[in-house]
Simulated scan of single mutants.
Amino acid sequence: MVRLPLTPEDRERGRLLGEALRAARGERTMTEVARAAGVPVETLRKIESGRVPTPAFFTVSAIAAALGIPLDTVLARCATPAEDDAARSA
């Protein structure tokens, strides 16, 4: 299977996802959250830093559940400016 190259928008969305998850984590350690989500700490670290801009859905879902935030909230926080503009015009 050939994977398409990531667009700048994909990378920005990944950065926004990382920021949102980091902010939601608050004072909790990465180890605490990773353990609660059932993912490796390094995976959480890479997502939070934006090094994995397109993590698997179930990984994001597990992290969001561990943080107690709905996926709709995560999605809203990851909308790029172009997506925000498109949503407002629709």
Rank of each mutant, 00 (worst) to 15 (best):
A23F: 02
P5N: 10
R22G: 06
D85P: 00
T43W: 05
E48S: 08
L44V: 07
R45C: 08
E9L: 03
A82H: 05
E27C: 07
R77E: 14
A23D: 14
G26P: 05
L44D: 04
R45D: 08
A87L: 13
L67A: 03
A20V: 10
V41H: 13
R3I: 13
M30W: 02
A37G: 08
P5Y: 06
G14N: 05
A79F: 03
A87Q: 07
V39A: 01
A65E: 10
M30H: 11
A82K: 12
A79Y: 02
E12F: 05
R3C: 08
I63E: 01
A90F: 03
P5G: 09
L71K: 06
A86P: 01
L4V: 08
L44W: 09
F58G: 09
R51T: 03
D84I: 13
A62C: 06
T31S: 14
A76T: 04
R45H: 14
R88F: 07
V2M: 12
A36R: 15
I47A: 01
V74W: 00
A24L: 03
S61G: 13
I47T: 05
R15Y: 06
L4I: 04
T29L: 11
A62E: 04
L67Q: 05
G26D: 00
D72F: 05
E42M: 12
L17Y: 02
L6A: 12
D85R: 14
E42Q: 15
L16E: 06
T80L: 01
F57V: 14
V2W: 09
I69P: 00
D72R: 11
D72W: 06
T29D: 11
R45F: 09
